[in-house]
C-alpha cells in the first residue's frame, strides 16, 4: 500500500480530466445518489452542494494522501472518516456564515456529505495510494465532475419545474411549471433521463472509435 505509486501510468492532467466524463462520479460510477437526488431542485442548490463536496473531496484527498504512509491499515477507514467529517463540519460553518438561506435550502444534506460515498471512495481507492499532486487533481476532477452532474440535474429540474435558471425567469410569461420536477420524483426522472443520455453517447463513441 505504501509504495504503489508506480501504478500511475497516466499523466496528472488525465487524473483531473477522468472525473469530468470518463469516470464521472454521478453518471458513470453512480455514487453519491443521496445528494444528487435530494438537493438538485434548483440550479443554485445544485452548484452550492457541488462546490461544498468538491472542497471536501480535495481537502480530504490531500490530507489522506499526505498521511498515507503513517496510517496503519487497520484504522485507515476510521482515520479517513474522521478527516472527512472534520472538513464537512468546517464547510457547514462556512456555508452558515456565507448565507443562512443557502444553509436552510441545503438542510441536512451538508452534514450528510460525510456519508457521500464518492469522498470515502476516492480516499480509499486513490488518495491512499497516490501522491499529493495526483490526489488533489483527482479530488478536483471528481468534484468538478460531480458539480457539473448536479448542475445538469438542477438546471433541467429548475427550468422545467419553474421556468427559471438560478432564479432568473427564462421562459415566457405564464409558463406552466411542472411541479413534479421540483418534487423528489422529478429527481429520479431527470437522473434516469440523463443516465440514458450518457450511456447512449458512450455507446455511440465506442462504435465510432474501434
Amino acid at each position: 500500500m505504501a509504495n504503489d505509486e508506480s501504478l500511475a501510468t497516466t499523466s496528472p492532467t488525465d487524473e483531473f480530466l477522468k472525473g469530468l466524463w470518463r469516470e464521472n462520479p454521478t453518471f458513470v460510477q453512480v455514487l453519491g445518489m443521496c445528494p444528487t437526488l435530494a438537493v438538485t431542485n434548483s440550479a443554485t442548490n445544485a452548484i452550492a452542494m457541488g462546490l461544498a463536496t468538491t472542497f471536501v473531496l480535495v481537502a480530504s484527498n490531500l490530507a489522506v494522501s499526505s498521511i498515507r504512509r503513517f496510517v496503519p491499515k487497520q484504522v485507515r477507514i476510521v482515520t479517513f472518516i474522521l478527516l472527512i467529517a472534520t472538513f464537512v463540519t468546517v464547510v457547514d460553518y462556512a456555508i452558515q456564515a456565507i448565507s443562512l438561506g443557502l444553509h436552510k435550502a441545503l438542510g441536512a444534506f451538508i452534514a450528510l456529505i460525510v456519508v457521500n460515498c464518492i469522498i470515502l471512495g476516492r480516499a480509499e481507492a486513490f488518495a491512499s495510494k497516490n501522491g499529493l499532486l495526483r490526489s488533489a487533481l483527482d479530488g478536483l476532477g471528481m468534484g468538478v465532475g460531480f458539480t457539473l452532474a448536479l448542475l445538469a440535474l438542477g438546471g433541467v429540474r429548475e427550468l422545467v419545474g419553474r421556468g427559471s435558471l438560478f432564479g432568473v425567469p427564462l421562459l415566457w410569461d405564464g409558463y406552466q411549471g411542472w411541479v413534479v420536477m421540483i418534487l423528489p420524483a422529478g429527481g429520479f426522472f431527470t437522473l434516469a433521463a440523463l443516465l440514458l443520455f450518457v450511456q447512449w453517447r458512450k455507446r455511440a463513441a465506442k462504435e465510432v472509435t474501434p
Binding site: 406552466q176 411542472w178 411541479v179 413534479v180 420536477m181 420524483a185
Partner: peptide, 10 residues
C-alpha cells in the same frame, strides 16, 4: 398520477 404531481392546480 404524473399529471397530478406535475400540474396539481389544474
Amino acid at each position: 398520477a404524473i399529471l397530478q404531481a406535475a400540474f396539481p392546480v389544474a
